[in-house]
Design a protein around this nucleic acid. Structure first.
Length: 575
RNA sequence: GCGGCUGUAGUAUAGUCUGGUUAGUACUUGGGCCUUCCAAGCCUACAGCCCGGGUUCAAAUCCCGGCAGCCGCACCA
């Protein structure tokens, strides 16, 4: 199977190792070896290139340990905890709420464990499989818990996603972006989930790297200024409709997907498109990709539309590597409520609106004598109250009650109503959030899987030039002192010019080419006898093993042009 | 978390059932010889019984526990 061959080479050549091996290992953790670490960094650098340079977003970095309050607000403390129960007979473990719902049809979400345990014993609910008794309900929280400080009084958690680190300093970010929507903020970093039984290698890790962008937009305007340029791009959309009716994914343009209401907004579909473009450039072909829409039943509590970018793998089937969601205003609203901070944005109307408004004015001749010392504070209350409501109350009930330190009854004679023109320049709203969330580890795995080529006499990673860890290898054709010296000079010169270059003089030339190919080195330079006389060397292309002669002093410049795709390899052929 | 199978150099394996000399082989890797361009050949070196406990005169081998991997179930807002 391809997966095994890939993982084998990846292990052998220092891309991916399982962690803590000398202590038997711990599942759900991986080490990136010397080449894997560069590859991963190159992917992340390219990601930055897309989102920071390309889209104009800015990156921040926030702590990986978060206080409980913040995760309470985000919903993770409550929603990331599953109530579990176990059958005493067959020892199967179940979600307690799922069992209850199936058995009673009753909605039990949000109930305490103790309450769930009570319901189970009251209604005599048994194991659905063998009918055995169930244990008391306990919580399994997917977050790693820790204690902050010497006395450890404050509960902290390892963050389960990087996104929250962006929502929390939203006020500062809003100021940084000078109070204008839309804007985007990204964060790349580790996130942690204590999975019950991670088993799919690098696909399900307990500690993993995310690259997330939070794009804050006006809910009334989810358009994207560049959309027209991508409106005829084709995506493979596996909509919820396709899934429910067992149809194949649709191959349609972004424009059509919007027209048919398959994807909810321009901004969202634009994100789908750039995710596809990104994956294509790092070596994952379109045909191995599809966009799968979350079914209404599986959508997270905060989202209104969510698409997973899935890549096909021989071993695990379709695997989610990116999630792109419209998180609405859920997070900001919730942090606003829990923290008491106003996290809204003032949106100015294109034209100030003139609105006719009824205002209540005290008739002081009657008002003052009636309420005496309490009059000023009642007036203050009336100013902020809804005038319409007061007017209706006076009409319907003949009085309006104001509860302050004691209750005051306002009668029609105390006030009069005036209609005034008011100019409203805008309103405060919670922005909506479009979030592309990339699982970097899964993407690195996908790259290795889909770039691995097995030919009859060699196998190698056909890595995209810009993410290949080692850019160029330099070899002396023979183990002769002069050739070795010249080759080492060339390697040194390449490094001075910023390229990761390897020198190798061990074994035969064919073996060295094979070794370099295997780890995906795009180009090789070989010094031979002629090189010593005319200062030319051969340059070899990994993908077709073609080679041409070039002057040795031009090597760094030519490598640069090749890597930047300013020239094609075949252009090196002398006219 | 449950059950089944498995664990020997960097990789792939022999040996385990039936306990007994220095754990064998191939590839890889390092050094050298040879060599005028795609894993050739020769010499040489490095490197291993998953961890812990038990049984025994003696454990890679038998027993128990742990850890990890694979498969099935469950879980994966």
């Amino acid at each position: 199977m391809k997966h095994e061959n890939v993982m084998n080479v990846a292990k052998k050549r220092g891309f991916l190792w399982s962690s803590f091996e000398i202590y038997s290992g711990v599942s759900g953790f991986v080490d990136y070896g010397p080449l894997g670490a560069i590859l991963k960094n190159n992917v992340m650098e390219k990601w930055r290139d897309y989102y920071i340079v390309g889209e104009g977003f800015y990156e921040i970095e926030s702590p990986t340990i978060m206080p409980e309050e913040a995760l309470k607000a985000s919903g993770h403390v409550d929603h990331f905890t599953d109530p579990m129960t176990e059958c005493k007979e067959c020892l199967d473990v179940y979600r307690a709420d799922h069992i209850l719902k199936a058995a009673t049809g009753q909605e039990v979400e949000g109930l305490e464990n103790q309450k769930l345990t009570e319901i189970i014993s009251e209604k005599q609910i048994r194991c659905p499989k063998c009918g055995g008794h169930l244990t008391h309900v306990w919580s399994y929280n997917l977050m790693f818990q820790t204690l902050i400080g010497a006395k450890g009084k404050k509960t902290g958690y390892m963050r389960p996603e990087t996104a929250q680190g962006i929502f929390i300093p939203f006020k500062r970010l809003l100021r940084f972006f000078r109070n204008k929507l839309p804007f985007g903020v990204v964060q790349l970093g580790k996130a942690y989930r204590n999975e019950i039984s991670p088993r799919q290698g690098v696909i399900r890790l307990r500690e993993f790297t995310q690259a997330e962008a939070e794009i804050f937009i006006n809910p009334a305007d989810k358009s994207h200024p560049q959309f027209s340029q991508i409106s005829s791009e084709i995506l493979s959309l596996y909509s919820s409709d396709c899934q429910l009716n067992s149809k194949d994914p649709l191959q349609i343009t972004t424009q059509e997907a919007l027209d048919k209401d398959i994807v909810s907004s321009q901004m969202l579909i634009y994100q789908l498109h750039i995710a596809q473009k990104f994956l294509r450039e790092i070596g994952i072909p379109d045909k191995a990709l599809r966009f799968r829409q979350h079914l209404p039943t599986e959508m997270a509590h905060y989202a209104i539309d969510c698409w997973d970018v899935e890549v096909h793998t021989d071993n695990y089937g379709w695997v989610e590597i990116i999630g792109i969601a419209d998180r609405t205003d859920y997070d900001l609203k919730s942090h606003s409520e829990h923290s008491g901070e106003d996290l809204r944005v003032f949106i100015e109307y294109p034209e100030p609106k003139k609105v006719k408004k009824i205002v209540v004015k005290p008739n002081m001749a009657k008002f003052g004598p009636a309420f005496k010392g309490a009059a000023p504070q009642i007036i203050k209350f009336l100013e902020s109250a809804d005038s319409n409501q007061i007017q209706h109350a006076l009409q319907d009930e003949g009085r309006f009650s104001v509860k302050l330190d004691s209750t005051y009854h306002i009668l029609p004679e105390h006030v009069k109503f005036e209609e005034v023109d008011e100019v409203v320049r805008g309103e405060k709203i919670f922005p909506h959030v479009i979030e592309p969330s990339f699982g970097i580890d899964r993407i690195v795995y996908s790259i290795l899987l889909h770039s691995f080529k097995e030919e009859k006499d060699r196998s190698y990673f056909k890595l995209a030039k810009d993410i290949a860890p080692v850019k160029v290898s330099v070899f002396p054709l023979l183990n002769k002192e002069e050739m070795k010296e010249m080759a080492q000079d060339i390697q040194f010169n390449l490094r001075k010019n910023g390229f990761i270059a390897e020198y190798d003089s061990s074994g035969t030339i064919g073996r060295r080419y094979a070794r370099a190919d295997e780890i995906g080195v795009p180009f090789a330079i070989t010094v031979d006898h002629d090189s010593l006389n005319d200062k030319t060397v051969t340059i070899r292309n990994r993908d077709d093993s073609e080679q041409f002669r070039i002057p040795s002093e031009k090597v760094p410049k030519i490598i640069l042009s090749l890597l930047k795709s300013k020239i094609e390899f075949k252009d090196l052929k002398k006219p």
